[in-house]
């Protein structure tokens, strides 16, 4: 019984949250990695683009709610998601036309692109707060819990409850769908193959008649889809705060680099590694160990590696360690 209690406790506070958080990071890291794989620069504006995507989805959600359009037990934001993707696509395309294409035509070095994306980041950061303000926004509606802790306790007779939020299930499901679609796209379609060829050897791709402009356009669009999904799912699951996406940039970059930047599979794996480490390092294992230890025994302190305020330090640590020990990341190569 104690063993089961320990498992449920761990699932409730570590396994499920990190699986969900990991999926959100994986979607974010995939976006960073795809852009890097094609355009060879790390897009620092990625986090703020996620913020923008979430805000546009929130506005559409509010509008839908105001005209009485909801999705029943599902969150209304799900209906707004396609529109969010479209608006984000437009924004990303506008940035491409007004900023990045200029540097591409001049064949600027990657570091110039990185700095330009930092500029875009600061600009978007301001624009987003101008429209939505600085308050925390909860835009989740519909059914909150699929399994409630109390009900689970009653049903199982255990001391520990297991809660499962709808957003958690949605996040994992949508992440799986998006990743499956992305891999199908990259492996099977003409544009996907063109993107991989372009990522492998740009000169040769051009010589095979692959239009670089089309590849760039497709890349930004895919990145917009991933940006919106990651941003909205994170916001739904927690809440929307303007600066939170800026902070998310670190774990997302850590995830992309752990997996080997430019490698989609690596980005996904990296997302989960970062999420699990972050959650596990900031969880207090006292109760968990009490269940597993002998009767009546209890650890003296909380058995917590880091306090939750320091959770971003975990990504930072992972980032530093990977860059020191295996700079190429888990999967080598910078090819899609």
């Amino acid at each position: 019984m104690d063993f089961l209690n320990a498992i449920v406790l761990l699932s409730n506070y570590v396994l499920i949250p990190s699986l969900v958080y990991g999926s959100q990071l994986a979607l974010g890291a995939l976006g960073v990695t795809i852009v890097f794989g094609i355009m060879r620069f790390a897009n620092f504006a990625h986090g703020e683009m996620m913020s923008f995507a979430t805000v546009s989805t929130i506005f559409i959600t509010w509008w839908f709610q105001s005209i009485g359009l909801t999705a029943g037990i599902l969150p209304t934001a799900l209906l707004a998601l396609p529109f969010g993707i479209l608006i984000t696509g437009l924004l990303v395309w506008a940035t491409e036309r007004s900023v990045f294409s200029y540097y591409r035509q001049r064949k600027s070095k990657p570091v110039i692109f990185v700095i330009a994306s930092v500029g875009v980041m600061f600009m978007l950061n301001g624009v987003v707060r101008l429209f939505i303000g600085t308050d925390e926004i909860i835009f989740m509606d519909g059914l909150k819990f699929l399994i409630k802790a109390g009900e689970f306790k009653k049903w199982s007779g255990l001391n520990e409850g297991l809660a499962l939020k709808q957003t958690q299930v949605l996040t994992v499901l949508l992440a799986i769908l998006a990743v499956a679609w992305l891999f199908w796209f990259l492996q099977k379609t003409k544009m996907g193959k063109a993107m991989r060829a372009f990522s492998d050897n740009e000169d040769l791709a051009l010589l095979s008649g692959i239009d670089p402009e089309k590849v760039v356009r497709a890349t930004w669009f895919i990145s917009a889809v991933l940006i919106t999904l990651a941003g909205v799912l994170y916001g739904l699951d927690k809440s929307y705060k303007p600066l939170i996406y800026f902070h998310l940039l670190l774990p997302i970059f850590a995830a992309a680099i752990v997996g080997g930047i430019g490698q989609p599979l690596g980005a996904i794996l990296g997302g989960y590694i970062v999420a699990f480490s972050e959650v596990a390092a900031t969880y207090a294992f006292k109760k968990f160990l009490r269940y597993l230890g002998p009767e009546g025994w209890s650890p003296e302190d909380l058995v917590q590696l880091l306090s939750t305020e320091y959770k971003f330090a975990v990504s930072f640590l992972i980032l530093v360690l990977v860059l020191l020990i295996r700079p190429t990341g888990l999967f080598k190569g910078r090819v899609l």
Binding site: T189, S208, G209, I210, D211
Partner: peptide, 14 residues
């Protein structure tokens, strides 16, 4: 790969 762009394929036909 050289013939990639000569393929008649769209997302739908894929």
């Amino acid at each position: 790969m050289v013939t990639l762009t000569l393929l008649r394929e769209t997302l739908i036909s894929a």
